[in-house]
């Protein structure tokens, strides 16, 4: 299995705080990796480093053939291959759901308006929101907004999707509808890395779990590892979650 993402000995600090302290892991094509850990364990930072939203001080990150650690990285080329969904949705408030989705394909891939609209309808249907195309973000629930955000990323046909605590701002019902969309994506073969607190989702969908603790990968393994933690820290963490 060829690695789509590989982090090797990644170090990152914010001022005096060491956030990543030699992080290494790999994610292969079609894998769904769930990165879990306590707040402050560095999991979101690791995810942001993969998309070059944060600069790293040491180590290497290869993503879809891009050397992300290289200062000469072509960020726009990287972003063509990688989609990201944020906890706070970050939809553009002045655009409808459809326009939010159409913007990047038209700007970046020079799609015609008609083609972009067809594409938008297609991805909106995939997240179950075909009838909400003309709605503005403020007219949508949090779960719907997040699904539009996922659709917006999908429209760029990324090879890798990153999810940064995408359900943390949602109530259980809305969380469910977003997770269902993500599960469908996983089943469709999308390579995904998700930072999440949804242990049951990680258990069910993830092919790989990366447990981060104190800025390093403390334990890693298949989803089943959550039922049989090897380290006391993970045991405590999983216990606290249940």
């Amino acid at each position: 299995m060829s690695a789509v993402v590989s982090l090797t000995n990644v170090h990152k600090r914010f001022g005096a705080v060491k956030v990543l302290n030699g992080v290494s892991f790999e994610v292969g094509r079609g894998e769904v990796a769930a990165v879990i850990g306590q707040s402050g364990s560095g999991k979101s930072t690791a995810l942001r480093c993969i998309n070059a939203l944060e600069r790293i001080e040491e180590g290497t990150i290869e993503v879809c053939g891009h050397a992300v650690h290289d200062p000469k990285l072509d960020r726009r080329a990287l972003r063509r291959d990688v989609g990201i969904v944020f906890q706070s949705y970050n939809l553009f408030p002045h655009l409808t759901a459809e326009q939010n989705i159409m913007l990047a394909p038209m700007c970046v891939k020079s799609l015609s308006k008609a083609d972009a609209r067809t594409l938008a309808q297609d991805v909106l249907a995939r997240v179950g929101l075909a009838e909400k195309a003309d709605h503005y973000p403020e007219q949508l629930s949090g779960g719907q907004q997040q699904r539009v955000a996922i659709a917006r990323s999908l429209a760029m046909q990324p090879k890798l999707m990153l999810f940064d605590e995408v359900t943390s701002a949602l109530d259980p019902q809305l969380t469910g509808e977003v997770l269902k969309v993500m599960e469908d994506l996983a089943r469709g073969g999308m390579t995904m890395i998700l930072v999440t607190h949804e242990m049951s989702f990680a258990r069910k969908v993830a092919t790989k779990v990366v447990y981060m603790h104190r800025g390093t990968v403390w334990e890693t393994g298949p989803g089943a590892m959550l039922d049989d933690p090897q380290t006391p820290e993970l045991r405590k963490f999983v216990g606290g979650e249940m």
Partner: peptide, 30 residues
């Protein structure tokens, strides 16, 4: 305009000019 908006635009691959036009100036001026 919230920084997260710029991040979203950046991650979608929009250029700086495109980001300014579509994501910053339009809502800012409104």
């Amino acid at each position: 305009i919230h920084k997260a908006q710029l991040e979203a635009a950046e991650c979608l691959g929009l250029s700086r000019v495109q980001t300014y036009w579509h994501v910053i100036l339009r809502p800012a001026i409104e």
